[in-house]
Nucleic acid binder design. Structure first.
Length: 276
DNA sequence: TGAGTATGTTCAG
DNA sequence: TGAACCTACTCAT
């Protein structure tokens, strides 16, 4: 599930297992071969993530930039190193583990300047220490675009994807169509803090679970579990299923070619939320 | 076994 | 707005 939490989890794992050591870098599939040769045998100085982007820094002007896109995946396997299976775009072998990258949208060798340009165009990342929610608020509070658009706009908030969008809006009772400028400052502060919490939890768990304790079936007595589903989310991909909180069927629509899920009762349309 | 679908982004038209 | 990228999973046949 490559939303921001996945990339930050990978960055931490790569930092722990590969950073400050020489790594063998190759491209069994061939598409990254020329660049892999350049960094092969160098010391990986640092791995970091910003939103859904991953950066491996190999010293001056040598940065491997990775974006998983929709399908990309990084494996992490303990030695011994096995023959590559399938299309492995990048293989990075460290002292104890090796990581295979398959199906990324981007895997490229870039300069420090190009890496900075990517950072510069990305918005505030709830998982980064340098995130400034005021900057995101400045954009949201003067935008007529709906929250459904703004939350997924990587230039505004980096790292939130379709799952976190649906879940964060649900948890705050916000209508996905509410224009950014109709959101109150207090509502934004609460939403931002919750995104930080949710994404941090995603990094820890390696998966997205957003149910509050009172709705988490694994924390309830069997008799109280009722119709609560096994997947621990409120709205995402639960079209037509009863809302865990109020029982209203979860609604679904396409929004800018992406699936949007919400509860029409818990996230009432603009009129009520605008006054808050 | 094959069709359909997906958590994302970029580019052409 | 739709196609392309090109992987893994679920479901129907």
């Amino acid at each position: 599930m490559p939303e921001g939490h996945t990339l930050h989890r990978l960055a931490r794992q790569h930092q722990r297992r590969y950073a400050n050591r020489q790594v063998a870098v190759s491209s069994p599939q061939g598409r990254f071969a020329t660049s892999a040769e350049i960094v092969d045998g160098r010391v990986l100085e640092r791995a970091e993530a910003h939103g859904k982007h991953l950066f491996h820094h190999y010293g001056p002007d040598l940065v491997v930039h990775i974006h998983l896109g929709l399908y990309g995946k990084f494996s992490d396997v303990k030695h011994p190193v096995a023959e590559p299976r399938g299309l492995v775009r990048l293989r990075m072998v460290g002292p104890t583990h090796y990581a295979d990258l398959r199906g990324p949208t981007a895997c490229e060798l870039i300069t420090d300047h190009e890496a900075e340009a990517i950072h510069a165009r990305l918005g505030e990342d709830p998982l980064r220490k340098d995130a400034d929610p005021d900057r995101a608020w400045a954009r949201i509070s003067r935008s007529r675009a709906p929250l459904a658009t703004l939350l997924m706009d990587q230039k505004v908030i980096a790292g939130v994807g379709n799952v976190y969008r649906a879940e964060a809006l649900f948890r705050h009772g916000l209508d996905p169509q509410l224009p950014g400028k109709a959101l109150g400052r207090k509502q934004w502060d609460e939403l931002w803090l919750d995104l930080v919490d949710l994404l941090q939890d995603g990094v820890r768990q390696g998966k997205i679970e957003t149910l509050r304790p009172e709705h988490d079936p694994t924390l309830l007595k069997p008799a109280d579990r009722g119709a609560l589903c096994a997947r621990k989310v409120y709205a995402y991909r639960r079209t037509g299923e009863p809302c865990i909180v109020c029982g209203t069927p979860i609604a679904h629509d396409k929004h800018l070619a992406r699936n949007l899920f919400w509860c029409p009762t818990c996230q009432p349309a603009v009129a009520r939320t605008e006054r808050q």
